[in-house]
């Protein structure tokens, strides 16, 4: 028997999007496969790696632990929505400048996490940066340049504000 579908409306990266999803559809799958926003990645599907992190009403959440139907009507920002048109956000530019990514698979999750972190705390200490990104796994970089990138992003944001 076909599954019952639910119509949901999401504001994704500032655009109103509609989707018909079964109750069990994960937000990560909805974003990736129903809305075609494949920048959000899925690394473990059990909420540990943080690759799937998106901003839900501005707060970082694990989209792989969220059912799409539960966020009906909410605002979501994915990695595709971080840049200002063609100009990358300070966080994105800092990651490029500091070599804060290698394979790039965990990167969208880090970018969303760090974007929220710096909005809350525009000038974090070393400890606060480590704490802030300690829910995201990266298997390539050893984190050193990610930490550097977070500080650099804070610097760019301060310069540009």
């Amino acid at each position: 028997m076909p599954e019952q579908a639910h119509e949901i409306t999401l504001v994704v990266n500032g655009t109103l999007r509609r989707a018909e999803v079964p109750g069990r559809r994960l937000l990560s799958d909805c974003l990736r496969h129903d809305l075609g926003l494949t920048g959000t990645h899925v690394g473990c599907e059990h909420g540990v790696c943080g690759c799937c992190t998106v901003l839900l009403d501005g707060e970082p959440v694990r989209s792989c632990l969220t059912f799409a139907v539960t966020v009906d009507g909410r605002e979501i920002t994915t990695v595709e929505g971080l840049a200002d048109g063609e100009r990358m956000s300070p966080v994105q530019r800092a990651f490029a400048e500091c070599h804060g990514l290698q394979c790039g698979f965990c990167t969208p999750g880090f970018l969303c996490t760090v974007t929220a972190l710096l909005r809350e705390n525009p000038a974090p200490t070393e400890e606060e940066v480590l704490e802030g990104i300690s829910g995201n796994l990266c298997r390539c970089t050893g984190y050193q340049n990610i930490v550097k990138a977070v500080h650099r992003a804070a610097e760019i944001m301060a310069e540009e504000s």
């Binding site: 926003l37 494949t38 994915t78 595709e80 990358m88 994105q92 490029a96 990514l101 790039g104 990167t107």
Partner: peptide, 9 residues
């Protein structure tokens, strides 16, 4: 990087 940082990988 520009591709990977903007979700276009």
């Amino acid at each position: 990087d520009p591709r990977l940082l903007t979700g276009r990988g």
